[in-house]
């Protein structure tokens, strides 16, 4: 158990993440904090197709804490190798819109894991605060095949049933092109230079046919398409997304979204569903809930 305090999130070199080895065993509480978070939301907004805004983009606080997250994941006590881990789910709760010039601090931690179908899953929590209150809480669920899976899942996986259609009326239905250089452009603003996102040849070294889009970019771009932003929604905003398959670069992706219902736990608000398909497969699906208050 340990907490690494930083003034600002550290820059973790790529080699440390690539060479990170795991000793196995359960995941202890590992945390890192930073008193000050800094970033360039304008550049981020541009690469994600978001209108420039005096407010932070909804996914941006995670990027502010990227260094803290890597510090946690490369901590010697973290028992899982980083090569091969997969970002499978993302939950975000933004308590209110965050101004771009607001002083912010960050806190990232992991602890424990749970067995799942294809390995073990762990949750990495990222909290961004203004010193008085938590404004943004992200839960990044990571799958690792190096963690123990469900006992019954040791059997061969049954043939999968076709995924059901997304349960919402299409208010938006469109296609857009994801360019080949996207991974490199996003890497410039996010600092995430994972080779699987850069070039086809670097991705091939890690078993991919082509480079794939960053999951966080994919999610941010979907929210941009839905016009979900702190500008348009000052209240509580919750996002729950599942990453199902990668988006190859370049490719044409098909996006749909629409309303699901009008009340959330009896509180006034709206929930919209969204789905992104790439190469005929669901790549990302999720919901966005906007509520006045909880």
């Amino acid at each position: 158990m340990g907490v690494s305090p930083f003034d600002t999130p550290p820059v973790v070199p790529l080699w440390r993440t690539a060479l990170k080895r795991g000793a196995g065993g359960s995941i202890p509480h590992i945390a890192a904090t930073a008193r000050t978070l800094r970033g360039d939301p304008a550049a981020y907004a541009e690469v994600c197709g978001l209108p420039a805004s005096p407010m932070l983009p909804v996914c941006f606080p995670d990027m502010l804490c990227r260094g803290l997250q890597l510090a946690v994941l490369t901590d010697p006590a973290f028992p899982v190798p980083l090569l091969g881990i997969v970002h499978v789910r993302q939950r975000i709760e933004q308590r209110r819109a965050i101004a771009a010039d607001e002083p912010l601090s960050g806190h990232v931690w992991v602890e424990g894991h749970r067995p799942a179908q294809r390995g073990g899953e762990l949750d990495m929590h990222t909290v961004v605060s203004n010193g008085e209150e938590a404004l943004w809480h992200g839960v990044t669920t990571i799958l690792s095949r190096d963690l123990p899976r469900l006992p019954e899942a040791n059997e061969p996986e049954p043939k999968r049933e076709p995924k059901p259609e997304t349960p919402f009326q299409h208010q938006r239905s469109t296609a857009w092109t994801v360019p080949e250089d996207l991974g490199r452009r996003y890497a410039k603003v996010s600092g995430d230079v994972n080779p699987i996102h850069q070039y086809a040849w670097t991705a091939k070294l890690f078993g991919f046919k082509r480079a794939i889009a960053h999951g966080w970019w994919t999610l941010a771009r979907c929210l941009a398409e839905m016009d979900v932003s702190s500008d348009t929604w000052p209240g509580v905003l919750s996002v729950d997304a599942r990453f199902l398959s990668p988006v190859s670069l370049p490719s044409t992706v098909w996006f749909t979204s629409g309303p699901m219902d009008d009340t959330v736990d009896g509180v006034t608000g709206t929930t919209s569903g969204f789905a992104l398909r790439s190469s005929g497969k669901l790549a990302l699906t999720g919901t966005v809930t906007q509520t006045i208050a909880r």
Binding site: P51, S53, R172, S173, T174, A175, S229, T232, W254
Partner: peptide, 15 residues
């Protein structure tokens, strides 16, 4: 059922 992509998607309201 919609033709995928046909309904389109509104340009961001800010713009």
């Amino acid at each position: 059922n919609d033709i995928p992509g046909n309904v389109g998607s509104a340009w961001p309201e800010t713009w």
